[in-house]
């Protein structure tokens, strides 16, 4: 089976960007900004539908960063200083953990009213290791403890999303593979065990998505991670890494470069994918962007989504 979806946030449309800039300067009301969000969200959903994407998301247009819904809506944490988001010209507000983390209400608040009823819905959440690594914790003072607590919160959140009707939960874990934040090999086994808590009792499909770094070590352990799919950034992971690995179920290949405006050639992508397919047995293969696409303009992202679709078609024909 070959499918496709977008990973995380899509770019805001240029119209929405103009409106958010006006709002930020006090020249647009909150109501008018909401209208602009509605229009843009409909557009990103429509593009996903039109390109036959398997799991549709709301594009996360309102998310200021991967953690903000959590740092704003959970008890015990608040958004803190602005820091660089890995190796990008993008910044996030580091969650400051001052007290016991408590889930007060559903956190991620996906815009379900815009999602098509007859399609499968997908949502993206931060994975425990990335959350713990990128936060400033003055309460637990123990990364493992913080990860454990956050994993339980994620589990509750995922079950809420499951009840609402979501079919695919992507857990973003760039810190797990990024050059300066990745754990030592000896620590990995303990760290990935945390996914057992995250997905305990969860029936919908889940994915550990790694990006901005080399996933070789994660792929070696893929069969023991309590998720269905593993997502890999092919712009930071050598294709050799797929040799001899065992997967639980699916592989999500981040082969569309979400950080460069060059539009890929579907035929070139197909060649690379076919080579990887020779190395590893995959029940479910997804052709995806390597990371969130909000490093691009909306138009470029749209073009790349079409390349994704074309690549899948080429693979299916083959």
């Amino acid at each position: 089976m070959i499918g496709t979806y977008v990973t995380g946030a899509l770019p805001r449309t240029q119209e929405l960007i103009s409106k958010t800039r006006l709002y930020d300067r006090g020249r647009l009301s909150e109501g008018d900004l909401d209208v602009a969000y509605t229009e843009a969200t409909k557009k990103v959903v429509e593009i996903q539908e039109n390109t036959g994407i398997n799991y549709i998301s709301d594009g996360m247009l309102k998310w200021q960063d991967l953690f903000r819904p959590f740092s704003s809506r959970l008890g015990g944490v608040e958004p803190g200083p602005m820091l660089r988001w890995f190796n990008n010209n993008t910044f996030y507000k580091a969650p400051i953990i001052k007290n016991e983390l408590k889930i007060m209400a559903p956190v991620s608040d996906p815009q379900i009213k815009f999602l098509p009823k007859n399609k499968n819905w997908k949502v993206t959440l931060p994975a425990p290791y990335t959350f713990a690594t990128m936060s400033h914790d003055s309460f637990y003072k123990d990364k493992k403890e913080l990860m454990k607590v956050f994993a339980s919160i994620l589990n509750q959140e995922i079950k809420t999303l499951e009840k609402i009707g979501f079919k695919y939960i992507q857990l973003n874990d760039p810190a797990l593979v990024y050059m300066t934040t990745a754990p030592q090999r000896s620590e990995l086994t303990d760290i990935i065990k945390i996914f057992e808590t995250v997905t305990e009792g969860v029936k919908v499909r889940t994915c550990l998505h790694t990006f901005f770094g080399d996933a070789t070590q994660i792929l070696k352990l893929a069969g023991s991670i309590a998720v269905n799919d593993i997502g890999v950034d092919l712009y930071d992971t050598d294709p050799e890494a797929f040799k001899g690995i065992t997967l639980n179920d699916g592989l999500a290949l981040g082969i569309i470069n979400a950080r460069n405006s060059i539009i890929e050639d579907p035929h070139d992508l197909k060649k690379i994918i076919v080579e990887i397919q020779k190395e590893v047995e995959v029940k479910q293969l997804y052709i995806i962007p390597n990371s969130d696409m909000d490093f691009l303009t909306f138009d470029k992202a749209e073009e790349k989504i079409k390349v994704m679709k074309k690549t899948v078609e080429n693979l299916k024909e083959a």
Binding site: R21, D24, Q64, F91, K93, T297
Partner: peptide, 16 residues
Amino acid sequence: SGWIKSFDYRYFRKAA
């Protein structure tokens, strides 16, 4: 190529 998000409601015009 257009505006790219830097953080929150701040953007920069990015060229190729």
